[in-house]
Write a protein that binds this DNA or RNA. Structure first.
Lengths: 96, 96
DNA sequence: TTTACATATTGGCAACCGTCTATTTATATG
DNA sequence: CATATAAATAGACGGTTGCCAATATGTAAA
């Protein structure tokens, strides 16, 4: 992941509504209409946010008829850890 | 770390020059004037970037006479892992 | 095919961000 | 104090971002 892609990913994370979306998806796949209910934004705005989250690779989508289902991408975690390794030095750690 | 602080941190990471700065600091503390040499930006712009990096807690500073010395903050890694835990679900992992 | 509904795209606006030049502040030294 | 140097602040400008209303597209069912 080069600097450009990292910037893209971090920009995607740098918005309160998108963070809320990720937290909602943390528990499993959700339909766009469900996400809309829990956020104080319009449908086009949600669509915009989902595009950013998908484009940076944090979120996967699955189309089923009229509905779009979103979920945290499998390798989303690795992307975050990669940032740590590339820009902050220390290896991945278990800090619990 | 609440959503607001996370946004602040991710915004700080969402710029190519700041990523370069972090990579430079990865190997240890550096003076501002040294950082300037490796970046194609002016001194005020660097000062601006450093403020953002310090304010979000990713970078520590140490003033020595006229010189400012910057380094990756001790708990910078934990902050990244916290994002993973809070917004992407899975626990901290070792994926090497 | 017509209707209904879920989602995406367009276009516009205010706020924010990265950058610069000019200036100010802080610190050391003659 | 006067001078020199390192860093911070102020103000301005173009580009980007988040938001919405309006519209378009895609899909299912009558």
């Amino acid at each position: 992941m080069n600097d450009r892609e990292t910037v893209k990913l971090c920009k995607a994370l740098a918005d309160e509504n998108r963070l809320k979306i990720l937290r909602l998806l943390k528990n499993g796949e959700l339909c766009a209409c469900h996400l809309l209910e829990d956020l104080q934004i319009t449908q086009p705005t949600l669509s915009h946010h989902m595009k950013l989250l998908c484009d940076c690779g944090l979120v996967d989508y699955r189309k089923e008829g009229k509905w779009m289902h979103y979920s945290i991408a499998e390798n989303a975690h690795e992307k975050i850890f990669a940032i740590n390794a590339e820009y902050l030095g220390k290896e991945t750690a278990n800090d619990t």
